[in-house]
Computed example of a mutant assay.
Amino acid sequence: MESQTIITILITGIIVSKIIIGFLLYELIRKNRILKREKVKLLGTNLALEEQSDQIKKYNEELKASELFKIKVLSIASHDLRTPFVSMNMLLNTVDLSLMSKLDMEQVLLQLGSEISHSQNMLDEVLLWAESQLRDNLENKETFNISQQIQHVLLLFQKDLMSNNISLEESLPKDVYLYMSRDIFSFVVRNIVSNAVKFCKYAGKITLGVSEMNGDEFLLYIENEGINMPESTVEKLNNRNSWDHRKAVNGTGAGLGVSLCKDLLQRVGGNIYFENISDVGTIVYISFPMNTLMTQDHEVINKENSNFMNGFQEQN
Rank of each mutant, 00 (worst) to 15 (best):
N241E: 09
L123N: 04
T83K: 11
E235W: 10
K201N: 04
V258L: 15
S287G: 06
D80M: 06
F288I: 12
G251R: 03
D104M: 12
G215A: 10
W243Q: 12
Q148E: 09
E275Y: 08
V210N: 02
I222E: 05
Q55D: 14
G215W: 07
I29C: 03
L97R: 13
N310K: 13
D80E: 11
I272S: 14
A254P: 06
L138W: 00
I166F: 01
H79D: 08
S101G: 05
V249N: 04
L99C: 11
Y177K: 03
Q4C: 02
G44Q: 15
R246D: 14
I7T: 07
D160M: 07
F157T: 00
E38D: 09
I71R: 11
T83V: 14
L138I: 08
V176S: 10
M122C: 02
H298D: 13
S211G: 07
G270S: 01
D175G: 01
F69Y: 09
L172D: 12
V249W: 05
T12H: 12
S306I: 11
L43T: 09
D175A: 07
T207S: 13
C200H: 01
S78H: 14
L112I: 10
V16H: 07
Q4K: 13
S132G: 00
G226A: 06
R135N: 13
E299Q: 13
Q266E: 15
N239L: 05
G257A: 04
K102E: 15
I146L: 05
M100G: 02
T45A: 12
D54S: 11
L161H: 00
I286G: 02
N316P: 00
D80Q: 12
L293D: 04
D297Y: 10
L168A: 10
Q111N: 15
E131P: 00
S66T: 11
G255D: 01
D183Y: 04
F144E: 01
Q266G: 13
E275W: 01
I283K: 09
